[in-house]
Lab assay of single mutants.
Amino acid sequence: AFSSEQLARLKREFNENRYLTERRRQQLSSELGLNEAQIKIWFQNKRA
């Protein structure tokens, strides 16, 4: 489960760009304390 802070950040990123570069995913992973797979799957689900 994502914290409300993490979700807000993911939604902001998604609004700016529906697709993440690998580098951006790595940055978000480290900033949010999530693993890259969690972020990747969140974006895939959000696009679906």
Results as ranks from 00 to 15, higher is better:
residue 14 F to V: 01
residue 12 R to A: 14
residue 30 S to T: 13
residue 9 R to S: 07
residue 29 S to I: 05
residue 15 N to R: 12
residue 48 A to H: 11
residue 23 R to F: 11
residue 24 R to D: 05
residue 33 G to P: 02
residue 44 Q to K: 09
residue 37 A to H: 13
residue 26 Q to V: 10
residue 43 F to P: 02
residue 26 Q to A: 12
residue 29 S to R: 03
residue 6 Q to C: 04
residue 40 K to D: 15
residue 22 E to R: 13
residue 36 E to R: 04
residue 18 R to G: 07
residue 17 N to C: 11
residue 20 L to C: 06
residue 6 Q to L: 05
residue 14 F to K: 02
residue 47 R to A: 13
residue 38 Q to M: 14
residue 29 S to Q: 05
residue 25 R to T: 15
residue 25 R to G: 12
residue 39 I to E: 00
residue 20 L to D: 12
residue 47 R to M: 13
residue 19 Y to S: 06
residue 32 L to S: 02
residue 17 N to I: 03
residue 27 Q to W: 09
residue 9 R to H: 07
residue 12 R to D: 11
residue 44 Q to H: 11
residue 48 A to T: 08
residue 8 A to E: 14
residue 6 Q to G: 02
residue 23 R to Q: 14
residue 34 L to K: 02
residue 39 I to S: 00
residue 10 L to D: 02
residue 37 A to N: 14
residue 28 L to P: 00
residue 13 E to N: 01
residue 28 L to R: 00
residue 18 R to V: 07
residue 1 A to H: 13
residue 41 I to W: 14
residue 13 E to M: 05
residue 13 E to P: 01
residue 24 R to F: 06
residue 1 A to P: 12
residue 25 R to S: 15
residue 7 L to W: 03
residue 24 R to L: 07
residue 48 A to G: 08
residue 21 T to F: 03
residue 5 E to I: 08
residue 46 K to C: 08
residue 7 L to Q: 06
residue 47 R to I: 13
residue 16 E to P: 01
residue 3 S to V: 03
residue 27 Q to L: 10
residue 38 Q to D: 14
residue 44 Q to R: 09
residue 37 A to C: 12
residue 19 Y to P: 04
residue 17 N to H: 10
residue 24 R to G: 05
residue 2 F to P: 05
residue 11 K to V: 15
residue 41 I to F: 09
residue 10 L to W: 01
residue 9 R to K: 08
residue 15 N to T: 10
residue 22 E to D: 13
residue 13 E to I: 06
residue 14 F to P: 00
residue 21 T to C: 07
residue 17 N to P: 01
residue 10 L to E: 01
residue 22 E to I: 10
residue 10 L to I: 02
residue 42 W to A: 02
residue 14 F to H: 03
residue 42 W to L: 02
residue 7 L to E: 13
residue 13 E to L: 03
residue 40 K to C: 11
residue 22 E to G: 09
residue 11 K to E: 15
residue 37 A to K: 10
residue 13 E to D: 03
residue 4 S to E: 14
residue 43 F to Y: 06
residue 1 A to N: 11
residue 35 N to M: 10
residue 12 R to L: 10
residue 40 K to T: 15
residue 16 E to D: 08
residue 38 Q to L: 15
residue 46 K to V: 10
residue 9 R to F: 06
residue 48 A to Q: 12
residue 11 K to T: 15
residue 9 R to V: 13
residue 23 R to G: 11
residue 7 L to D: 05
residue 15 N to E: 15
residue 30 S to V: 14
residue 3 S to F: 03
residue 12 R to T: 10
residue 34 L to R: 01
residue 3 S to Y: 03
residue 43 F to I: 02
residue 19 Y to Q: 08
residue 17 N to D: 08
residue 25 R to F: 12
residue 16 E to A: 10
residue 43 F to G: 00
residue 18 R to S: 11
residue 48 A to Y: 08
residue 40 K to P: 00
residue 47 R to V: 12
residue 29 S to G: 06
residue 9 R to A: 12
residue 2 F to I: 11
residue 24 R to Y: 06
residue 13 E to H: 04
residue 18 R to D: 06
residue 16 E to Q: 13
residue 14 F to G: 01
residue 16 E to L: 13
residue 13 E to F: 04
residue 14 F to A: 03
residue 35 N to H: 11
residue 25 R to P: 04
residue 32 L to M: 07
residue 16 E to W: 07
residue 43 F to K: 00
residue 16 E to I: 12
residue 36 E to L: 05
residue 13 E to S: 04
residue 33 G to N: 09
residue 31 E to N: 03
residue 34 L to H: 01
residue 22 E to A: 14
residue 39 I to F: 02
residue 38 Q to R: 07
residue 28 L to Y: 00
residue 21 T to Y: 03
residue 48 A to W: 07
residue 20 L to N: 02
residue 41 I to Q: 14
residue 1 A to E: 11
residue 15 N to H: 12
residue 35 N to Q: 11
residue 30 S to N: 13
residue 5 E to G: 07
residue 30 S to G: 08
residue 47 R to T: 09
residue 27 Q to M: 10
residue 18 R to K: 11
residue 43 F to S: 00
residue 26 Q to G: 06
residue 5 E to T: 07
residue 16 E to T: 11
residue 23 R to N: 14
residue 44 Q to F: 09
residue 1 A to F: 11
residue 8 A to K: 10
residue 11 K to Y: 13
residue 17 N to Y: 06
residue 17 N to E: 04
residue 28 L to W: 01
residue 28 L to F: 03
residue 41 I to G: 08
residue 21 T to H: 05
residue 24 R to P: 01
residue 6 Q to R: 02
residue 21 T to E: 05
residue 10 L to S: 00
residue 18 R to N: 10
residue 45 N to A: 08
residue 8 A to P: 00
residue 19 Y to D: 07
residue 13 E to W: 03
residue 16 E to Y: 08
residue 15 N to G: 07
residue 4 S to D: 14
residue 14 F to Q: 02
residue 4 S to L: 11
residue 15 N to Y: 11
residue 15 N to V: 08
residue 35 N to S: 15
residue 7 L to N: 05
residue 11 K to W: 15
residue 35 N to A: 14
residue 30 S to W: 11
residue 45 N to L: 13
residue 40 K to E: 15
residue 45 N to G: 07
residue 3 S to T: 15
residue 18 R to E: 10
residue 29 S to W: 03
residue 11 K to M: 15
residue 20 L to R: 01
residue 35 N to P: 15
residue 9 R to Q: 06
residue 46 K to P: 04
residue 20 L to F: 03
residue 46 K to R: 15
residue 12 R to C: 10
residue 1 A to G: 12
residue 34 L to Q: 01
residue 18 R to T: 07
residue 38 Q to Y: 08
residue 46 K to G: 06
residue 33 G to R: 05
residue 10 L to M: 04
residue 33 G to L: 05
residue 32 L to V: 04
residue 28 L to G: 00
residue 44 Q to E: 14
residue 42 W to Y: 06
residue 35 N to D: 14
residue 8 A to G: 06
residue 29 S to N: 01
residue 8 A to C: 08
residue 44 Q to T: 07
residue 45 N to S: 09
residue 3 S to I: 02
residue 32 L to P: 00
residue 20 L to H: 03
residue 2 F to R: 00
residue 21 T to N: 09
residue 39 I to M: 03
residue 2 F to N: 02
residue 33 G to Q: 07
residue 42 W to Q: 00
residue 26 Q to Y: 09
residue 38 Q to F: 10
residue 26 Q to S: 08
residue 27 Q to C: 06
residue 42 W to V: 01
residue 22 E to K: 15
residue 42 W to K: 00
residue 33 G to Y: 04
residue 15 N to D: 13
residue 41 I to T: 11
residue 35 N to G: 11
residue 10 L to P: 01
residue 13 E to G: 00
residue 15 N to M: 12
residue 10 L to Q: 01
residue 10 L to R: 01
residue 38 Q to V: 14
residue 7 L to P: 00
residue 14 F to D: 01
residue 28 L to C: 03
residue 34 L to M: 07
residue 43 F to T: 00
residue 36 E to S: 08
residue 17 N to F: 06
residue 40 K to Q: 15
residue 45 N to I: 10
residue 3 S to K: 04
residue 11 K to F: 11
residue 2 F to S: 02
residue 44 Q to S: 09
residue 1 A to V: 12
residue 30 S to C: 09
residue 31 E to Y: 05
residue 42 W to F: 06
residue 12 R to K: 13
residue 46 K to Q: 15
residue 23 R to C: 09
residue 46 K to W: 11
residue 4 S to P: 14
residue 30 S to K: 14
residue 12 R to S: 11
residue 48 A to D: 10
residue 22 E to Y: 08
residue 16 E to M: 10
residue 46 K to A: 15
residue 30 S to H: 13
residue 20 L to V: 05
residue 8 A to L: 08
residue 18 R to P: 15
residue 18 R to Y: 06
residue 42 W to E: 00
residue 10 L to A: 01
residue 4 S to F: 11
residue 12 R to Q: 14
residue 48 A to L: 12
